[in-house]
């Protein structure tokens, strides 16, 4: 086995393990492997590699390579649901959405419980602009396969794109239930609540996210990073709204009580944000903008 090939196989295995898309790289490495005809040396990994290469080559617009992979896979696994799904994706890449939709409908009429095909069908529906049908199908999909976090996120995304923030928030609650440890979902829910106009709920959820993502021993000295900074911005926005116009903003559709000590929370958020934009060696880029924003009423 040449060195080039060994490197390529190594890289592909890492991409697969990390579930990374990196289509261009995958495609280049994959073509090297195909050129050396080393498919059979990988054992059972070879099939996973073919699936990976199919998706990558469709991403970079080389349907001929994808066709080659799919025909190899079909020979080995005739009637496999995974290969059927790949064939569908291949159709989506070059044919009109109607053709792809027809394919998925036909396939689902034979085997109605194939989750992968069902999800592809929903995505095609959404792409065709048939949001109504997409939402309908997706709801029925999620009613059957409740534990699919991706599905709930997609539903929330569709609702958000239609400005149905309350419905999106409801969908996001299910992702919170299914993945309570993921602070990114919590942040998304908090931001959706803010956009929906439910300020008391939003501030509570933003605070939850900061609590989740900052678990250092001496919280007062730690410098907020990444998602924590973003949620402190959220807290600041909420407290500002609550302080400015408490009568209208404290109305909560979800009957969440307004937190006590709003003033203190506001101070805390300001302090945390300023900490985030300062380091041991002087102010950080962007600090002036932040200060200006904090001072603006």
């Amino acid at each position: 086995m040449s060195k080039e090939l060994a490197v390529a196989l190594q890289k592909l295995a890492t991409y697969r393990a990390q579930n990374s898309r990196a289509s261009q790289q995958t495609f280049e490495q994959g073509v090297t492997v195909l050129k050396h005809n080393a498919l059979w040396k990988q054992g059972d990994d070879g099939w996973a590699f073919l699936e990976q290469l199919t998706l990558a080559s469709l991403d970079v617009g080389k349907p001929d390579v994808a066709d080659r992979c799919i025909s190899l896979l079909t020979q080995k696994f005739p009637g496999s649901p995974r290969v059927e799904c790949l064939t569908g994706i291949r159709l989506e890449a070059t044919e009109t959405p109607e053709v792809a939709l027809k394919y998925y409908d036909d396939m689902l009429s034979i085997e109605e419980s194939n989750a992968a095909l069902w999800k592809r069908k929903i995505s095609v529906l959404r792409r065709m602009g048939q949001i109504n049908r997409a939402v309908e199908e997706l709801s029925s999909y999620l009613d059957t396969f409740y534990t699919d976090v991706e599905g709930w996120l997609e539903l929330a995304n569709i609702y958000t794109s239609c400005n149905q923030y309350t419905l999106a928030l409801q969908a996001l609650q299910h992702t919170l239930l299914l993945a309570p440890q993921n602070s990114f979902y919590a942040l998304q829910a908090a931001e959706t609540a803010y956009t929906a106009g439910d300020i008391p709920l939003a501030i509570k959820m933003f605070l939850t996210v900061t609590d989740m993502s900052d678990d250092s021993d001496s919280p007062a000295d730690s410098i907020p990073e990444g998602i924590t900074v973003r949620s402190w911005y959220g807290v600041k926005l909420c407290t500002r709204n609550l302080l400015k116009d408490s009568r209208t903003t404290s109305v909560s559709p979800s009957q969440t009580p307004v937190p006590e000590h709003v003033k203190l929370l506001d101070e805390l958020a300001t302090e945390r944000l300023l900490t985030a934009y300062s380091s041991g060696n002087g102010p950080v880029n962007g600090r002036e903008v932040l200060v200006k924003w904090l001072e603006a009423k």
């Binding site: 959820m205 939850t208 609590d211 919280p219 007062a220 929370l265 302090e271 945390r272």
Partner: peptide, 17 residues
């Protein structure tokens, strides 16, 4: 709910209360 007393908990955590 985890968010029930979150504000007092956080204020205590950062030494504000």
């Amino acid at each position: 709910w985890t968010g029930k007393d979150i504000e007092t908990r956080l204020l205590k955590k950062y030494g504000k209360l």
